[in-house]
Design a binder for these strands. Structure first.
Lengths: 143, 143
DNA sequence: GGCTGAAGTTTGTATATGCAAATGTCGGCA
DNA sequence: TGCCGACATTTGCATATACAAACTTCAGCC
């Protein structure tokens, strides 16, 4: 109470702090899969829709195309994904190894969810999540 | 509506998206000062408490000491801050140039605030900010 | 008084992400 | 048919941030 940060009323500030802390939690939970959180999300996305073009991954994950290229590249090196150039798009498909790894990835994701939900309380967590998602949508529209 | 992201109920995901979007807004607003948002916050922090040890900056900004070292280092190169080694801590003080730049920095900060507040609506913005800040505090305690 | 450990900072290295430019591919039009 | 602009992706480069190890300084204890 005595030491509220000077920046507690700045959303830029708090949002970045929360994102860093959640990323560090996510890294811990996904560690058992050998993947970083972002790589894990790419894997889940591609397993859900095999053959997805890279640009679609970019849109679903709200990351730039170049970032997606790097992520997929690394997963390809680990033999978890394959890329196929089709026309001007690049279709990405999971390998058998990816299918095998998927349950562990999904379990880690569930643990992450459970972890921050426990820390915030179920209602607060749900509310913060939707508010944050709505904000992301509005910000995205304006840019 | 038709295309809600699969990840809209994941706070890790939304928090990172919002943080990226806010960072990009902040970069635009702080651009006139020639500083990145983080550098601008360091400058404001040090102008507010001249002689602050680096570790205190680290705590106020919720960044690691090494990150603060890099930020201060660059501001020192630009003749905006000075470092003085006192015992085992490093005291950081603003230069005259920093004092001169400070109003522009604060103005940019106000513009940033106004910008996201306009996009979200005043109540929603305030509520999201406090909820986010509370979450950051809880996450920090648990780590 | 000298050692030992803890605290504060810096340095080396690694990762995530983005922007801008380059590359490759398609569609339409002269 | 061949060129030109638009789209999808990749590549080169830059920045932000962190972790771990090294370095410095102090504080207490023998």
């Amino acid at each position: 109470m005595a030491t509220e940060s000077r920046y507690c009323n700045c959303l830029f500030f708090s949002a970045n702090a929360v994102a860093r802390l959640l990323t560090s939690m996510a890294e811990e939970e996904f560690a058992v899969t050998g993947l970083s959180p972002s790589h894990a999300f790419v894997l889940m996305t591609v397993c859900h829709k095999p053959g997805l073009p890279a640009g679609e991954i970019s849109r679903e994950m709200q990351l730039t195309p170049s970032t997606v290229t790097r992520l997929v590249e690394k997963l390809e090196q680990r033999k978890l994904l394959e890329r196929e150039s089709v026309g001007r798009s690049t279709r990405v498909t999971p390998t058998a190894a990816a299918a095998e790894l998927l349950p562990a990835v999904k379990a880690a994701w569930r643990r992450l969810h459970a972890r921050y939900t426990a820390l915030l309380g179920p209602e607060a967590a749900a509310q913060l999540t939707t508010a944050t998602y709505e904000a992301a949508k509005k910000f995205e529209q304006s840019s």
